[in-house]
């Protein structure tokens, strides 16, 4: 690790001000950033810790019935307190291990947008709104490929608003070593249609499987997916599985998510 200064603001406004300095970077739970620093792969001069900002923590229900989760809320808190949205709570409860869940935050995960991370699938499948210190971004506009998002330099994810579906489930097929998603599929059934988001599989990061969405919107059953498949082209191919295998798993995990949806 290179040496750096640390600031611990207690409001979003102070955090934004602190981030205005050159080479300052927000620190959420540190579960991704700290290992990166230890390997000397990043060298911020200032870390602005978001973990002391009370207004970024916790879960509440918005006027429109959506679930509002503060950007600094840990995975463990979501697992324990997002019972109104079962698919989301169980997703959070299966991220990493207890230490990761007690530190890692939803804002950090969405800001990082790891192509194998779990939360991006939930946000995209829910049509969530990513709220930052300066604007609201629809999930469909937010994810822009592996590790790329619509966030500007110094912009902070302060809250994520999830419309609560009638039924949902997340099916994660774990990469054997990291236990991130080799393929993860989030299925959410709303009154006006079904959304299906896939993580872990594509070289473009999280994506919506529109054919499956259409089929499931007219018939929410695993049978509706019979004969549908995604192409292996553009899928991640690595030590843990070929693109063709990942494409196949997308189909299997989608079916299982539909069956498991509650």
């Amino acid at each position: 690790m290179y040496s750096f200064d640390i600031q611990r603001p207690s409001t979003v406004a102070d955090a934004v001000a602190a981030l205005a300095t050159d080479e300052a970077q927000p620190l959420g739970g540190g579960q991704t950033l700290i290992p990166t620093l230890k390997q000397r792969l990043a060298a911020p001069s200032v870390l602005v810790s978001l973990s002391g900002i009370a207004e970024m923590k916790g879960i509440c229900t918005g006027d429109d019935g959506s679930l509002c989760i503060g950007g600094g809320t840990t995975h463990a808190t979501v697992a324990a307190e997002a019972g109104a949205y079962l698919g989301l709570a169980s997703l959070a409860g299966n991220i990493g291990d207890p230490a990761v869940r007690n530190r890692g935050t939803i804002g950090g995960s969405l800001a990082n947008n790891d192509p194998s991370a779990c939360y991006p699938a939930a946000a995209l499948a829910s049509g969530a709104t990513i709220v930052t210190n300066s604007r609201e971004i629809a999930a469909d506009d937010y994810f822009q490929g592996m590790f790329a998002t619509a966030l500007e330099e110094g912009e902070i994810v302060t809250e994520v608003r999830f419309p609560v579906p009638e039924k949902s489930a997340y099916m994660k097929f774990e990469q054997p070593a990291s236990r991130f998603a080799l393929v993860g599929v989030f299925v959410a059934k709303y009154a006006d249609g079904v959304r299906v988001a896939v993580t872990g599989a594509s070289e473009e990061g999280v994506f919506r499987w529109s054919e499956a969405e259409a089929a499931l919107s007219s018939n929410f059953s695993a049978d509706a997916l019979e004969g549908l498949s995604v192409s292996g082209d553009g899928m991640i191919s690595d030590l843990h599985g070929s693109g063709a295998y990942r494409a196949h798993l997308v189909g299997v995990m989608t079916k299982r998510a539909v069956v498991a949806a509650r």
Partner: peptide, 9 residues
């Protein structure tokens, strides 16, 4: 390729 526990199971 498997240089850490991210890839070595």
């Amino acid at each position: 390729l498997s240089a850490s526990y991210m890839d070595y199971a």
